[in-house]
Amino acid sequence: MTRLDIVLAGVLSAAACGGGPETVAENELTKSTRARLLWKRNVALEKDIVRALELAPDEVCNELGTASCTRDVHHVALGGAAPFSLGLHKALPTPMLSTAVVVDRVLLSACSNRVAKDALGPAVVFTALDLQDERGPAAGGKAFDATVTALYRRFLARDPTEQELSVLGDLAREPMTAQEFAILACYAVGSTTEFLFY
């Protein structure tokens, strides 16, 4: 088990126990009375990740290094049809129990691949971080703000709020390397309901 695995397990466990970070305080906004969102299914999810992280489609996530997570292996759980392989002519109407796990898998893979490429240079997404640093950026610092802002713009097409910066600041206070912070910050923004539904 790598150090990232341990950090990730801790962060995910905390998130699971805590019910997930709030991106905005619920009582501060007028709520939708319709609450009818569309599920960003496998193809759109893949394309949005490709655009956000400037990866090639085959760099997003592959099982055993060859089979696409979004197109071939987990496409049903991600909301795709499978007419040729499974006779599933119509995609499932709602997410499955395994969908959340698969989304995690896809995002962590894509984020890890992007960080690895940026670490080799030249950096494309994590340009404000020294990815060789043994410590992550200081919460509220220039590199931290620039990184989180870049992720929000790339995934959600907007700037983060002060509260969202604060939430990710909690992550930055955990002991971890710059690369670990980059992966987990990328995962945190990419796995928001705002990115996964529309």
Binding site: T30, T33, K40, R51, A157, Y198
Partner: peptide
């Protein structure tokens, strides 16, 4: 909320028919 929001529709148009969200 509660009225037609072109910004909301914009993201839907791009995702549904182009397969990708608009950029920042």
């Amino acid at each position: 909320v509660g009225v037609y929001d072109p910004r909301f529709a914009f993201r839907r148009v791009r995702l549904l028919f182009c397969g990708m969200s608009p950029s920042f």
